[in-house]
Computed example of a mutant assay.
Amino acid sequence: MYPVVCFDERPCQLIDDSIAPIPMEPGKPRRQDYHYKRNGVASLFIAFEPLTGKRIVELRARRTKVDYAHFLKQVAQHYPNATKIRLVQDNLNTHNPSSFYQTFEASAAFELTQRFEMYYTPKKGSWLNMVEIELSVLSKQCLSRRIGELSELDQQVTAWAEARNRKKASVNWQFTLNQARQKFHRFYPNTST
């Protein structure tokens, strides 16, 4: 079994109202002041298996090599029967096997490096990673309002992921090989001669 898992993370600002909003009334929307209170940031880690519509999410206080390694260990535990997990990700400095060795003992780190087969999207091409579509959906459906506490953000993101997993919501990827060759023609050798 070789599941394809797309991974990415994004920062989430914890923003709270500084003045209590005026609740919705018949014929009037909820109103909130433009002033807000910033309560810090969190990092949202997401792994998405587009062929099955399965996603794993976790919120962490930071985005470091250690956080990355712990999250991927959790991802590996979701696929106990996988021969290799094909991991699609961008080229961020934390996204490499050295994160495992910095975080775990050598034997555990080696075991994790053997579980993953890492594929990197090209620079300025992270949009090729299907998890970006999931992050866009998450942003629109869950993160477009003020959430001031990490516990509330965690609850909302977890509920969103569980609902999407129940639906087995996947991505209808329509970018073909021919379209890729047209878009990235300067990277492909001329094969017509």
Rank of each mutant, 00 (worst) to 15 (best):
Q13F: 05
E58Q: 14
L72H: 02
E105A: 14
I15K: 04
H78D: 15
R146F: 10
L177G: 11
A159W: 13
I19L: 12
A106N: 09
E134A: 01
L72N: 02
S107R: 10
V131T: 02
W173P: 01
L51H: 13
K168T: 05
L128H: 04
E149S: 12
N178P: 03
Y188T: 05
M1E: 13
K167C: 06
K54W: 14
I85K: 00
S136G: 06
R166T: 05
A82M: 10
A163H: 09
Q156N: 14
Q32E: 14
I46L: 14
S99M: 01
N178F: 08
I15L: 13
A82Q: 07
S126T: 11
N93D: 15
K73D: 15
H78P: 03
I19D: 07
N178Q: 15
F45K: 10
P23H: 02
L87S: 06
F100G: 01
P3L: 07
N93Q: 14
R145L: 11
Y2I: 03
Y120A: 04
V157L: 13
E134F: 05
C12F: 11
H78F: 08
Y36K: 05
E111N: 12
Y2C: 09
R164E: 05
V75N: 03
V137A: 06
M24V: 11
T103G: 08
I85D: 03
W160D: 08
N81H: 15
D17G: 08
V171P: 00
F45Q: 06
R62C: 03
Q77E: 14
S170F: 10
R145T: 11
L143E: 08
Y68R: 03
R63S: 11
A163W: 12
K28V: 12
N81Y: 10
P80C: 04
S126W: 05
M24T: 15
V171L: 05
R55C: 07
M1I: 09
L135D: 04
K65S: 04
V88F: 01
S192T: 13
E149F: 12
G53F: 01
Q114H: 11
Y79G: 05
